[in-house]
Amino acid sequence: MYFYPAPVNKKGMFEVRFHGRGGQGAVMAAQTLAEAAVNEGNYAVAFPFFGAERRGAPVLAFTRIDSKKIFSKTQVYNPDCVVVLDDSLLDTIDVVSGLKPEGIAIINSKEKPEDIDLGKIINTATVNATSIALEILKAPITNTAILGAFAKATGIIKIESLEGSIKRKFGEKLGAKVGERNALAARTAYEKTLMGKSRGVKKLEARKQWLPDYQEIPIGGALIEGKTEAGLIGPGSFIENKVSGWATYRPVRDKEKCTMCLLCWFYCPEGTIHRISDRGDLMTNYDYCKGCGVCANECPVDAIKMVRARV
């Protein structure tokens, strides 16, 4: 069963938006899909949108597939399909924004489609790409597994074509063995993909953004500490940027073992471990913990353990 049984040339252009986090390989997935589509005789383009953020931050990538040359050079606003490489993104980003009513959401999740709440009821496919990747690739890089689910759910591309592109593209960069394994991850995901409809209960509030017009923008873009309807701006305003979604693991400290040597507090690159001076204690604010694990690694008495941030 495909959500999209018709071949590309009957439906016109097919547009895909990938949601991932820096480091998960969303761009590579978009490119691999494009290459596979071209190998099937279609025309395809893939391109990234790079934000300013680094590893772990949300990123976007796009693929367009058509039977004829594609001239459009804009971003994709009304995709036929969205692919979500990391289901933690569902909490903060409206991943189905602009998705066509008959469009498909493909989500890396251990849940069934019926248990995924996308804020609207739409065709949804899920696959636990993370566990497949961990098992086959020994790393939580889910881009190839999720492509298997894409092939299964959309029917836009044959799984064999994807396997071919993956082997070539990953093999060329990382060695034939890695290519084979990634192709296997795609095939495994293809077979394990569940299809159904999402739930449509939650209301995702669009993140407010301060968008001053040209008269309101401070002269020369120079900012002092300020507050807008959308929150803080200027020096120190990053404090409103919660980055916990980046974390796969988070530290848990055993107070009994802790000697208050303060090394974790010193090393934490985020500044998310605080001293509570009146109690001579430490507190970790998980809102800002990206789960790097330096604190646990450096603790001289082994008082910190890293645990999965989301189960």
Partner: peptide, 25 residues
């Protein structure tokens, strides 16, 4: 000038500026 580099009233001047703002500037 109104906004200068002054520790008494910190300002950021010359920040990295995404496309959402640069056209207005």
């Amino acid at each position: 000038p109104d906004i200068i580099l002054d520790p008494a009233r910190p300002a950021m001047i010359g920040t990295f500026m995404p496309a959402e703002y640069i056209m207005e500037l």
